[in-house]
């Protein structure tokens, strides 16, 4: 009995460093967020009090949040699909017998290792009207000068382009690793049977990459709802909330409008939405995925 207890103590001692860190920075804040979402934001005059689900009801009457959600859904779809396709294409290119492929691999991966704030500043220059790279190309091709980040119709797509540019190289690394795990004899066996390159990709390579695609898909989805850093530098959610995304809106609510309870409510809402999306993705793709 005594020996058994000692085992328990050892176990808890070994677990404690991770437990303390996770607790302090992840689990306790999450629970506190959940609690504060049921209270009103306290001020000097009106101290915080329990309001039940009143904060949650507010979500559905909030036009800016609705716009952020719609923006974010478009942002997610328009970044994830192209960056996965690009990532697979780039991985296939740098996996082939290409001279100087190490350089190409590095080039593809560079956007991922650059700090986002610096990258955003570079892109800010690209998008600057008149003198920016985009405008110079556009005017040389005979289009009118455009305020890329100042126009409601173009601003979100400009942000999307930056994200694709950044994420595709990162996902490529995962696909490249997976491609290099596919034994070359499979390709030889298929080609001996007369399979074309495209047929081989469709029947063999792509299905074998499914575990990676699932991983990348879940990661990319989560990332797309967690974006804030570009927005600080590039648009601050504007103009007229045209590039406002959920997490940036939560940040603004909490630290600009100082309504921490409502921000907590939005956070909980986002958390649940993401959990549900991940579970659905996982269940949908898991059946279609072959794990080695």
């Amino acid at each position: 009995m005594f020996k058994n207890n000692l085992h328990h103590i050892y176990a808890w001692l070994l677990l404690s460093p991770a437990l303390i860190l996770m607790g302090t920075f992840t689990h306790i804040p999450s629970i506190l967020t959940l609690i504060s979402s049921f209270f009103s934001t306290g001020t000097k005059k009106f101290p915080s009090k329990f309001v039940g689900i009143e904060n949650y009801e507010m979500i559905f009457d909030d036009p800016i949040f609705l716009e952020a959600v719609i923006n974010n859904i478009w942002y997610a779809i328009a970044t994830i699909v192209p960056s996965i396709i690009l990532a697979i294409l780039m991985a296939l290119i740098v996996d082939s017998k290409l001279s100087g492929r190490v350089l190409v691999r590095m080039a593809y991966f560079t956007p991922t290792i650059l700090p986002m704030i610096a990258v955003s500043n570079i892109w800010l220059f690209f998008y600057t009207p008149e003198i920016g790279l985009m405008d110079q190309i556009a005017t040389n091709l005979g289009f009118n000068s455009q305020n890329w980040l100042g126009d409601k119709d173009t601003v979100l797509n400009c942000i999307i382009l930056i994200t694709i540019w950044k994420e595709a190289g990162f996902f490529m690394i995962f696909y490249l690793a997976a491609l290099q795990n596919i034994p070359p004899e499979l390709k030889e066996a298929a080609f001996l049977e007369g399979s074309s390159k495209f047929y081989f990709f469709r029947r063999i390579t792509f299905p074998l990459l499914m575990p990676i695609t699932l991983f990348v898909l879940i990661n990319a989805t989560l990332n797309s709802f967690k974006l804030v850093d570009h927005l600080f530098i590039l648009t601050k959610g504007g103009p007229d909330n045209a590039s406002n995304l959920i997490l940036y809106y939560i940040y603004e609510t909490a630290f600009s409008f100082l309504d921490s309870s409502y921000a907590a409510t939005l956070t909980i809402f986002l958390l649940f939405a993401l959990a549900i999306i991940s579970i659905v993705q996982f269940m949908f793709f898991d059946k279609r995925t072959h794990y080695r």
């Binding site: 004899e185 080609f191 001996l192 049977e193």
Partner: peptide, 30 residues
């Protein structure tokens, strides 16, 4: 593929995500 040759590899080179039937008839489907 035009040499009228089939080949058995040392590692067998079976497609891991396809079942036995699909593996065997892969070439016929192609």
């Amino acid at each position: 593929s035009s040499r009228n040759i089939s080949m058995v590899f040392q590692s067998y080179a079976l497609f891991p995500h396809l079942n036995v039937e699909e593996n065997i008839i892969f070439g016929l489907k192609v």
